[in-house]
Measured scan of single mutants.
Amino acid sequence: DAEELIELVERALKEGREIILLGVRITSEEAGKWFIEWIRRFL
């Protein structure tokens, strides 16, 4: 579910982890915020 995915992304970014989803590397909080917004819009 989308909320679970958002929580995972937020937690990983807070822990300083690198996330790779759909071939996109997300390493900064700014990118994470963009990704979370995208999830909310399309899922």
Rank of each mutant, 00 (worst) to 15 (best):
D1I: 15
D1A: 13
D1T: 13
D1M: 14
D1G: 13
D1S: 13
A2T: 09
A2P: 08
A2K: 08
A2N: 06
A2E: 07
A2Y: 15
A2F: 15
A2S: 07
E3N: 10
E3R: 15
E3F: 15
E3D: 11
E3C: 15
E3T: 12
E3I: 12
E3W: 15
E3Q: 13
E3S: 11
E3G: 11
E4K: 15
E4G: 13
E4C: 15
E4I: 14
E4F: 15
E4M: 14
E4L: 15
E4N: 11
E4P: 11
E4Y: 15
L5N: 00
L5Q: 00
L5T: 03
L5A: 01
L5P: 00
L5E: 02
L5H: 01
L5K: 01
L5D: 02
L5C: 05
L5V: 04
L5R: 00
L5M: 09
I6Q: 03
I6V: 07
I6P: 03
I6H: 04
I6S: 03
I6Y: 05
I6A: 05
I6N: 03
I6T: 05
I6D: 04
I6K: 05
I6W: 15
E7H: 12
E7A: 13
E7P: 02
E7S: 12
E7T: 12
E7Q: 11
E7G: 13
E7M: 11
E7D: 12
E7K: 14
E7L: 12
E7R: 15
L8Q: 08
L8A: 06
L8G: 03
L8Y: 07
L8P: 00
L8V: 03
L8E: 05
L8K: 09
L8R: 09
V9F: 04
V9C: 11
V9W: 02
V9N: 02
V9K: 00
V9Y: 00
V9T: 02
V9A: 02
V9E: 01
E10W: 13
E10R: 13
E10T: 14
E10Y: 07
E10K: 14
E10Q: 10
E10G: 02
E10M: 10
E10V: 13
R11V: 04
R11Q: 07
R11E: 04
R11W: 08
R11S: 04
R11M: 04
R11F: 01
A12G: 04
A12Q: 03
A12L: 13
A12I: 13
A12P: 00
A12Y: 06
A12C: 15
A12K: 02
L13T: 04
L13R: 02
L13E: 02
L13I: 13
L13D: 02
L13S: 02
L13Y: 02
L13H: 03
L13N: 01
K14S: 08
K14D: 04
K14Q: 09
K14R: 13
K14Y: 02
K14G: 07
E15H: 06
E15S: 11
E15R: 04
E15C: 15
E15Q: 04
E15T: 07
E15Y: 10
E15K: 06
E15D: 10
G16I: 15
G16Y: 12
G16E: 03
G16F: 15
G16C: 14
G16M: 15
G16L: 15
G16T: 07
G16A: 14
R17N: 04
R17V: 13
R17P: 06
R17L: 14
R17Y: 13
R17C: 15
R17S: 05
R17Q: 03
R17I: 14
R17W: 11
E18T: 12
E18L: 12
E18Y: 10
E18W: 09
E18G: 09
E18Q: 10
E18I: 13
E18H: 11
E18S: 12
E18M: 09
E18P: 08
I19V: 06
I19A: 03
I19W: 08
I19T: 03
I19E: 00
I19L: 10
I19Q: 01
I19D: 00
I19G: 02
I20T: 08
I20F: 03
I20R: 01
I20D: 01
I20H: 03
I20P: 00
I20Y: 02
I20G: 00
I20Q: 01
L21V: 12
L21F: 08
L21H: 03
L21K: 03
L21M: 06
L21D: 01
L21P: 00
L21I: 11
L22R: 05
L22N: 02
L22S: 04
L22C: 15
L22V: 06
L22D: 01
L22A: 06
L22H: 04
L22G: 03
L22Y: 01
L22K: 03
L22T: 03
L22W: 13
G23L: 13
G23W: 13
G23A: 10
G23T: 09
G23I: 13
G23P: 07
G23V: 14
G23E: 08
G23K: 08
V24N: 01
V24P: 02
V24E: 01
V24H: 04
V24Y: 04
V24R: 01
V24Q: 03
V24A: 03
V24K: 01
V24S: 01
R25D: 09
R25A: 12
R25Q: 06
R25K: 09
R25T: 09
R25N: 08
R25H: 11
R25W: 12
R25I: 12
R25L: 13
I26S: 03
I26L: 05
I26Q: 04
I26D: 02
I26H: 03
I26K: 03
I26V: 05
I26G: 01
I26T: 09
T27A: 13
T27W: 14
T27C: 15
T27R: 08
T27N: 13
T27V: 14
T27M: 14
T27K: 08
T27Y: 11
S28L: 12
S28E: 05
S28W: 14
S28M: 08
S28V: 11
S28H: 04
S28Y: 07
S28G: 12
S28N: 11
S28C: 07
E29D: 10
E29V: 12
E29N: 11
E29F: 11
E29G: 10
E29M: 12
E29R: 10
E29Q: 14
E29S: 12
E29H: 10
E30A: 14
E30Y: 11
E30S: 11
E30I: 12
E30G: 10
E30V: 14
E30M: 12
E30N: 09
E30Q: 10
A31F: 14
A31P: 02
A31W: 14
A31M: 14
A31G: 11
A31K: 07
A31T: 11
A31S: 08
A31H: 09
A31Q: 11
A31R: 07
A31V: 15
G32K: 10
G32M: 14
G32L: 15
G32N: 05
G32D: 03
G32Q: 06
G32I: 15
K33H: 06
K33A: 10
K33P: 02
K33W: 10
K33N: 08
K33C: 12
K33Q: 08
K33M: 08
K33Y: 10
W34F: 05
W34C: 06
W34A: 14
W34P: 00
W34M: 10
W34I: 11
W34Q: 09
F35Y: 05
F35Q: 00
F35H: 00
F35E: 01
F35I: 13
F35T: 01
F35G: 00
F35L: 10
F35K: 02
F35N: 00
F35R: 01
F35S: 00
I36D: 06
I36V: 06
I36R: 03
I36T: 02
I36H: 05
I36G: 01
I36N: 02
I36Q: 03
E37R: 05
E37F: 05
E37A: 11
E37M: 05
E37C: 14
W38T: 02
W38P: 00
W38Y: 05
W38N: 00
W38C: 10
W38I: 08
W38H: 02
W38E: 01
W38L: 10
W38S: 01
W38F: 11
W38R: 00
W38M: 07
W38G: 00
I39N: 00
I39G: 00
I39E: 01
I39Y: 05
I39F: 05
I39C: 01
R40V: 10
R40H: 08
R40W: 12
R40T: 11
R40G: 04
R40N: 08
R40E: 07
R40F: 14
R40P: 04
R41K: 12
R41G: 09
R41V: 10
R41F: 14
R41A: 11
R41Q: 11
R41Y: 13
R41L: 12
R41N: 11
R41D: 09
F42V: 11
F42L: 11
F42G: 02
F42P: 00
F42S: 04
F42T: 04
F42H: 06
F42D: 00
F42N: 02
F42W: 14
L43P: 00
L43D: 01
L43E: 02
L43V: 06
L43Q: 03
L43M: 12
L43N: 01
L43T: 03
L43K: 02
